[in-house]
Amino acid sequence: KKRTSIEVSVKGALESHFLKCPKPSAQEITNLADSLQLEKEVVRVWFCNRRQKEKR
C-alpha cells in the first residue's frame, strides 16, 4: 500500500486537533476525515503515529 502524503495545511489542522484531544473517538475521526477530505483510516493511522512520536 502506498504512503499517503498529507499537505501542510491539513497537517496543521490534525496537529491542532491532536493538541486538544490526542485520542479521538471513532466518531471524531470520521468527522475530521470528512472535513479534511481524507480517508478515515489515514486519519486514524496519523493519530496513532503521532501518539507514538510523542512517546519518543
Rank of each mutant, 00 (worst) to 15 (best):
K1H: 04
K1W: 08
K1A: 10
K1D: 09
K2D: 09
K2H: 04
K2T: 13
K2E: 11
T4N: 10
T4L: 10
S5V: 15
S5F: 07
S5Y: 15
I6S: 10
E7K: 13
E7W: 04
V8Y: 04
V8R: 13
V8G: 14
V8A: 12
S9D: 14
V10R: 09
V10S: 08
K11D: 14
K11Q: 12
K11W: 09
G12H: 13
G12R: 13
G12P: 11
A13F: 07
A13I: 11
A13M: 09
A13D: 05
E15A: 01
E15Q: 02
E15G: 00
E15N: 00
E15W: 03
E15C: 03
S16F: 06
S16P: 04
S16V: 06
S16L: 09
S16W: 03
H17E: 07
H17K: 05
H17I: 07
H17R: 04
F18G: 00
L19G: 06
L19T: 08
K20F: 04
K20C: 04
P22H: 04
P22C: 10
P22W: 01
P22E: 03
K23G: 06
K23I: 11
K23N: 15
K23D: 15
S25W: 01
S25L: 03
A26G: 10
A26I: 14
A26S: 08
A26D: 13
Q27C: 07
E28P: 02
E28I: 06
I29G: 01
I29W: 01
I29F: 02
I29P: 01
T30W: 05
T30C: 12
T30L: 09
T30H: 08
T30K: 11
N31S: 12
N31T: 13
N31D: 14
L32G: 01
L32V: 06
A33L: 01
A33Q: 00
A33R: 00
S35A: 12
S35N: 10
L36S: 01
L36F: 07
L36K: 01
Q37S: 11
L38W: 02
L38T: 07
L38D: 00
L38H: 02
E39Y: 01
E39F: 00
E39P: 09
E39S: 11
V42A: 13
V42S: 09
V42F: 11
V43E: 02
R44H: 03
V45D: 15
C48W: 09
C48S: 14
C48Y: 14
N49S: 09
N49T: 09
N49I: 08
N49G: 06
R51N: 07
Q52G: 08
K53W: 08
K53T: 11
K55Q: 08
K55M: 09
K55L: 13
K55C: 08
R56D: 06
R56Q: 15
R56N: 08
